[in-house]
Design a protein around this nucleic acid. Structure first.
Length: 273
DNA sequence: CTCCAGGCTTTAG
DNA sequence: CTAAAGCATGGA
């Protein structure tokens, strides 16, 4: 099964390479993308971007295709910030994904003080080791592990897969989620959710914001990492050094659009568009 | 060799 | 309360 969408506002490279997702790879004419226990093949042919999958409804929502990103870009450009306007112009095809909650929690715990290529490698090895082998029209693959599977391993297991000192964060949080679940997090607003996430081992302010934004659709979150901090000083002329204050600066500036703006900025800075 | 990567926890003041 | 040390790993 397949569907297609205007490629101007759905560019697979922009969507996948902007840093919000760690499980995808070049495949045929485009990319193969994985989310939890599902996969799809996405590629662009001229004016249309095509998604093929056994789970079309899931990926229609995953790629946030209900939302009109021409309006998002219009709003972002209305702030009159040159660096942001340029970023939007160069990354028109970017969209924020609606990703799996638990996958985001573990993935961004791994991401701390780490670089994207190595994050991808660690996650890939964890999936191969603990994920359910799953068949798909594009070949078998390993699903992202359930919290129960992750909770069955001790820190040494994650250390052996290259997770470094984050090993204990992964096993601790997996055991907590295996016991409590995450359904109680779903109805919270951004502030409540962020506050709750901060009580998990290995989740601090930045990781919590990424989980809120990418896993729970909280588009008023604005994660501040080393790239955003660099951009704040080099391109916004900022003088603050405290990350929580930098976060407050950006969220008060961009409000409900903070999450979208953050992603355009992060992508433009890191990929040097 | 040092520095850095989508930072957090722990400890000291 | 804020500030800083310590932390695994691999690539530049």
């Amino acid at each position: 099964m397949k569907f297609d969408y205007d490629s101007t506002y759905f560019n697979p490279t922009d969507v996948l390479e902007c840093g919000q997702i760690f499980r995808f790879e070049p495949f045929k004419e485009g990319y193969r993308v994985y989310s939890a226990d599902k996969d799809c093949y996405v590629h662009t042919e001229g004016a249309r971007t095509i998604v093929e999958s056994d789970h079309p409804d899931y990926f229609y929502n995953f790629f946030d295709l209900e939302r009109d990103y021409s309006e998002i870009i219009k709003m972002a450009e209305s702030f009159g910030v040159t660096f942001l306007t340029e970023a939007c112009h160069k990354a028109k095809g970017l969209r924020l994904l609606n990703q799996n909650r638990e996958e985001m929690i573990y993935s961004f715990i791994i991401s701390q003080n780490n670089n994207i290529p190595r994050i991808k490698g660690i996650i890939s090895r964890i999936c191969a080791g603990l994920g359910q082998k799953t068949d798909s029209p594009f070949g078998d693959f390993y699903a992202f592990p359930t919290s129960a599977a992750l909770a069955s391993k001790e820190p040494e297991y994650y250390k052996a897969l290259g997770a470094g000192y984050r090993d204990v964060f992964l096993s601790d949080t997996a055991k907590r989620i295996a016991a409590e679940g995450v359904s109680h997090l779903e109805d919270m607003n951004y502030d409540e959710l962020r506050k709750t996430l901060l009580t998990y081992k290995g989740i601090g302010p930045k990781v919590a914001d990424c989980i809120c934004l990418f896993g729970f659709g909280k588009r008023d979150a604005f994660p501040v990492d080393t790239w955003i901090e660099k951009l704040y000083h080099e391109d916004f002329g900022g003088t603050l050094t405290d990350r929580s204050k930098i976060n407050a600066y950006f969220t008060s500036l961009f409000g409900a659009y903070s999450g979208y703006v953050q992603q355009y900025l992060f992508y433009a800075k890191r990929a040097n568009l």
